[in-house]
Design a protein around this nucleic acid. Structure first.
Lengths: 210, 210
DNA sequence: ATAATAATAAACAGATTGTTTATTATTATA
DNA sequence: TATAATAATAAACAATCTGTTTATTATTAT
């Protein structure tokens, strides 16, 4: 947002800086990357960096926010393709795809930034922020769909707990998947995750037949 | 381990450095802490720090390893109180307590280091290491108890996926719990986590009666 | 008592940061 | 196309932090 109002030179500089940072983090790890290196790789003056970002962390955080917005848009939480709900609930447009599947697909499409962020190689503020984002979305989602919304709640488990359980398990599986070189398709990952989440370990591991 | 063989001066120095680091991280965040500050707070010469640790991260990583060993011992994975199994399985001694409960209790007892580590305020290597430790234990645990061990596996889901699902959700709930000021007892957290993990969201949120 | 060794202060070169200054190059727009 | 606005730039800077080394003092184990 407000990205388009920038001078062409500014857009160019930001893009170059972002690309340089990602490449360098994947090459040598977040901590080892210096501002000097970023600008050298981007072929920009070092002073230019400070015209746009406060520091390395600031740059990475802004990339994270953009990525999170992009994902939210995909899922339909921000700009639903169809007109909104009428029953007061947050009613996302899933176009037949499960939101979890969309997450894995988005991760596959943006694997490089997902790797950088989920690895935890970003600064600690980045890791913290991504957990915040994930559990906030989860809380919105569950509150609208799993009986937390209106009448008497159908569970005694606080929604925050459920949201953090969800966010942790999803991020855990995403991280493993990306670090292992994405050995399964997004569809497979999504289906497995949904089984574990909704049916629980007992049903999934030991089918009732046994 | 091998901690007792140290000169008394060395033990004292390490303890002071560790305490100073924790206090400073909780006060101003990992990144802002310098070696100079740590030694000033510990009332030691700066050179002494480098006699014991390579850098700030090294110190924190060693604390993490000690804490993880302590937890593993509690759970009985490392030094089971009772003689080992006879059926070939890794047979931990649970003394009637669920391992998950022991985790939450250990976290409550060592809240300060757990906060520092789980917050992700530690260096990225720390975050990564703790996920590795958690999923390795989970994999061992599940492989011995949930039908992954000997005969034909009872599930098509790879154990690595289950382990990372487990580690992510447990760390997610732990992190939230600590950051929220531990609003529930370890027993409550443990019970809730086990319900979500084994019975799944569907059973837990919508009891079959409805 | 004494030999071993841990802690120490001081000094060091090197890296990095974030800012400022004066100048050049590019852009948007009339 | 002319021009006013402004982005990019190189250079220099003080400040901070790092990791190492040196020679000396203090504490420990035995």
């Amino acid at each position: 947002m407000a990205e388009k109002n920038l001078d062409r030179r500014q857009r160019r500089s930001r893009r170059l800086l972002r690309d340089a940072l990602f490449a360098l983090i994947l090459e040598k790890g977040y901590d080892a990357v210096t501002v000097e290196e970023i600008t050298r790789r981007a072929d920009l003056g070092r002073a230019t960096f400070y015209l746009h970002y406060r520091d390395k962390e600031d740059l990475l955080l802004q990339c994270l926010e953009e990525t999170a917005d992009g994902l939210a848009e995909q899922i339909g939480l921000l700009q639903p393709a169809r007109p909104q709900e009428e029953d007061g609930h947050l009613q996302a447009d899933f176009s037949g795809k499960s939101p979890v599947l969309l997450v894995f697909q988005h991760a596959a499409q943006n694997a490089s930034i997902y790797r950088v962020i989920l690895r935890g190689e970003g600064a600690y503020k980045v890791s913290r922020r991504i957990r915040e984002i994930a559990s906030r979305y989860a809380a919105e989602f569950f509150s609208a769909r799993l009986g937390y919304g209106d009448g008497e709640p159908r569970s005694t488990i606080p929604i925050e707990v459920v949201a953090n359980y969800f966010a942790g398990s999803l991020l855990g599986m995403l991280t493993w998947w990306l670090e292992s070189g994405m050995p399964y398709s997004p569809e497979q990952m999504s289906e497995t995750f949904r089984q574990l989440l909704f049916q629980g370990l007992r049903q999934v591991i030991r089918p009732e037949g046994e």
